[in-house]
Design a protein around this nucleic acid. Structure first.
Lengths: 114, 114
DNA sequence: TGTTTAATGCAACTGAGTTGCAAAAGTAAG
DNA sequence: CTTACTTTTGCAACTCAGTTGCATTAAACA
């Protein structure tokens, strides 16, 4: 399972993971392992443009501190999805206690820009 | 349909809309009208924490220019979801052409902070 | 070896969103 | 009014990501 994330810097959708691991393990098992890896701080998840769930390897996450304010990019053309290691400053919102921020940028990646 | 959005400043999930309009129109019709209203620039949509679709009235949207960089807030406790009218500056990302940005903040709203 | 606990498989289910098609409602001539 | 045409709606069936219950297997450990 983790090999998938070691081979790429991109995020991987659960749908693709289930497909790629079809021979090795059951769909339910994929979901359960992903949940565990996220709890452990090895992976983090986010929701793609279409509402599908994506996972990516954590670089600077811990079990308690997940993906704070690092955005994700999803290419409208090829679907490639990846973490962007730039800092987004979330302005404080009065009267709200913000726990997490999820920023999804969509557009065209460099490969699809030609 | 639009009355729902006139009565509140909050966003409304499609699920809730279907439920509230159950007597007046079919589920399919709700989806179709929402799609039309979004095309026309009357409403804009975004994806909630759980992957469900939400709609909110447009204040400064046009058919071509939707919800650019205005974030949404979703309360972890009561589920209330609303537009935040603060500007988020998306730093330019080299080699990427960013078309849209969707920022979802989650936490506790003022009513649930007691 | 037996017992307990955790990990997996499988099948059936849930629920949001979609699709195809037919019925209804609206629009515009003739 | 009536016919022809277009748009809107309802309904049922479907798709598909994600979940659940339960039985089976594998690990851990006494």
């Amino acid at each position: 399972m983790l090999e998938v994330f070691e081979q790429t810097n991109n995020a991987v959708s659960v749908v693709e993971l289930v497909e790629r691991l079809r021979r090795e393990m059951n769909k339910t098992t994929v979901y359960r392992i992903l949940e565990r890896l996220e709890d452990e701080g090895t992976l983090h998840s986010f929701t793609g443009k279409n509402g599908l769930k994506w996972y990516a390897a954590c670089k600077e996450c811990s079990p308690s501190h997940h993906l704070d304010s690092h955005p994700h990019f999803q290419c409208r053309v090829c679907g490639k999805t990846e973490c962007l290691f730039i800092d987004i400053s979330i302005p404080p919102v009065s009267n709200y206690k913000i726990d997490s921020a999820e920023l999804l940028l969509t557009g065209q990646c460099k490969d699809c820009l030609s």
